[in-house]
């Protein structure tokens, strides 16, 4: 599992006047499930296309397994891509689609068929080989695209928002399957998504993209629990920031702090919370949102600013929840859950 699968150095890409990728340095390890997370237009897909070779960089370099491939065409790179809209060849059957990469590489026909069938079995599509892509559902097409990219056993598999077009249930199911397949085949996966939950649940490590740059790279827990920039704190998870003035009054030091909503407890204003390690703030409930398994409280703080708190509905139910609106509450959280976010660069 040791070794570097991909190394990007000073990677830049401009389209006309706009810089889609503005200097990216990144190392992705062998066998890793690596996610590139960011809003649309943050440059994550462009980085993926630069790795695949569909675009040539305006500056910097791309290394695959220690070899500089910056100037190589896509067909000279040991990388395969799963496209956002699958890009299956409509004039070929499922089996022909999957075997295409092998055929191009002059793998003998018998072996081609065996490997294509095995790849289809890996994505649980046995017996679908003779159909046309147009005869499949979205989820099935997605898996054909996956099989087609996996069958050649590339060193790296690039996935460009492959679950974006699926409905919620199917997406959750595919997240689990994708992760299982990755563990089985042991190939490095580079997964582009704008869905932070998807990135958090599937990845070994995540890079958060913002305006063509990487804001933070780390394991999901690191990204979520210890965001290093204000953007990461607000993009990953619910934006919940205490700023200078109110931070000073509540936590006793100025600066920007991030507190995750589920770390905050909502108590009656009169409740005492005098433990040394607990921060406390009073305020008025501005809005209550019943989510089924939990309730979200939006609280306007007396010290200024607004915090969101998430409470599991252990005993409360929908009727009780509505009564909270407009009431006075006390929010408490453990001090170590207020994470100092460095000021913007």
């Amino acid at each position: 599992m040791e070794g570097t699968a991909i190394r990007l150095q000073g990677l830049r890409k401009s389209f006309g006047q706009t810089a889609a990728v503005a200097g990216v340095d990144l190392e992705i390890r062998d066998g890793e499930f690596f996610s590139m997370l960011g809003p649309s237009g943050s440059g994550k897909t462009t980085v993926l296309r630069l790795i695949a070779g569909f675009e040539t960089p305006s500056g910097g370099s791309v290394e695959l397994a220690g070899r500089d491939v910056t100037r190589l065409a896509p067909f000279e790179r040991d990388v395969h891509t799963v496209f956002q809209d699958y890009a299956l060849f409509p004039h070929m059957t499922v089996e022909q689609n999957v075997a295409y990469g092998l055929k191009v590489r002059r793998v003998p026909k018998a072996e081609r068929l065996v490997r294509a069938r095995r790849a289809l079995a890996e994505v649980r599509l046995e017996g679908y080989g003779r159909r046309r892509p147009s005869e499949l559902s979205g989820g099935q097409r997605q898996r054909v695209a996956l099989a087609r990219a996996l069958v050649g056993r590339p060193r790296v598999l690039l996935l460009d928002e492959p679950l974006g077009a699926l409905d919620l249930k199917l997406r959750e199911q595919m997240q689990i399957e994708l992760k299982a397949i990755q563990r089985e085949v042991g190939i490095t996966f580079v997964f582009v998504t704008h869905d932070q939950e998807e990135a958090l649940t599937m990845s070994d490590r995540i890079a958060v993209f913002h305006q063509g740059r990487i804001e933070q790279v780390g394991a999901p827990a690191e990204i979520y629990e210890r965001p290093e920039t204000e953007f990461v704190a607000s993009f990953v998870g619910t934006s919940n920031l205490l700023r200078a003035e109110s931070a000073q009054r509540i936590l006793g030091s100025p600066g920007t702090y991030s507190v995750r909503p589920e770390k905050i407890r909502v108590l009656k204003e009169s409740a005492l919370a005098d433990e040394p390690d607990v921060a406390t703030a009073t305020g008025t409930v501005a809005e209550v949102v019943y989510l089924g398994d939990a309730t979200r409280f939006l609280v306007d703080l007396d010290a200024g600013g607004r915090l969101t708190a998430l409470q599991q509905n252990l005993e409360t139910s929908a009727e009780d929840v509505a009564a909270y609106r407009g009431t006075r509450v006390r929010l408490t959280w453990h001090r170590r859950h207020a994470v100092r976010v460095p000021d913007a660069r």
Partner: peptide
Amino acid sequence: LPDNLLDASADLGARPGR
């Protein structure tokens, strides 16, 4: 003709003629 089909073909190792 969708561009991404051409990308997909190149991605799977096909040269332009192929």
